[in-house]
């Protein structure tokens, strides 16, 4: 288990950018999560919540240590198919940590304004504007009111 105060290395950052693109690939005219430049925000986000940072470091350690020892150039030198296979291996080996890492990536990606624009989200907090859902229409109960009372009587 890595210590949560370990700093990321340049190799870590290269690996993380690539993993981010694999977790959330490009879509339409939007690059993947790595291409959007979210690696730095993921790292910053991990500083705020120790549990998520620990998960992130565990995954990066697993990726760099495992792959770098077997392939010249490390994870980044693998083709995409093998990169995906490698990430899936780590996911299987460290399911809890991988889940926490994905949580961190999603927290970063789905709070980005460029993503909000693409998916049609209002891109603002719920307050103070709220939403308009129309007004109460009592006629909608016309059928429901026809049913006889069916609650269970007691002595």
């Amino acid at each position: 288990m890595p210590t949560s105060d370990r700093q990321l290395t340049d190799v870590d950052r290269v690996v993380m950018k690539r993993i981010l693109d694999l977790i959330i690939p490009a879509v339409d005219d939007l690059p993947g999560a790595g291409g959007l430049g979210l690696a730095e925000r993921v790292e910053r986000g991990s500083m705020r919540y120790g549990r998520l940072r620990s998960g992130m470091l565990s995954i990066l350690d697993a990726m760099t240590l495992d792959i770098a020892s077997r392939v010249e150039g490390g994870f980044a030198a693998l083709d995409e198919e093998r990169q995906i296979a490698s990430v899936k291996t780590v996911e299987a080996d460290l399911p809890v940590q991988f889940s926490e890492f994905v949580e961190l990536v999603y927290e970063t990606y789905y709070t980005d304004s460029r993503v909000h624009e693409r998916i049609g989200w209002v891109g603002r907090p719920p307050q103070p504007e709220g939403f308009d859902i129309g007004s109460w229409d009592p006629s909608i109960l016309e059928n429901a009111r026809k049913r006889e009372p069916f609650w269970r009587k007691v002595e």
Binding site: G45, E107, Y110, T111, R124, P125, P126, Q127, P128
Partner: peptide, 10 residues
């Protein structure tokens, strides 16, 4: 309360 914070979901 966080409902008017841009990071409300986090």
């Amino acid at each position: 309360y966080p409902t008017d914070d841009k990071n409300w979901e986090i």
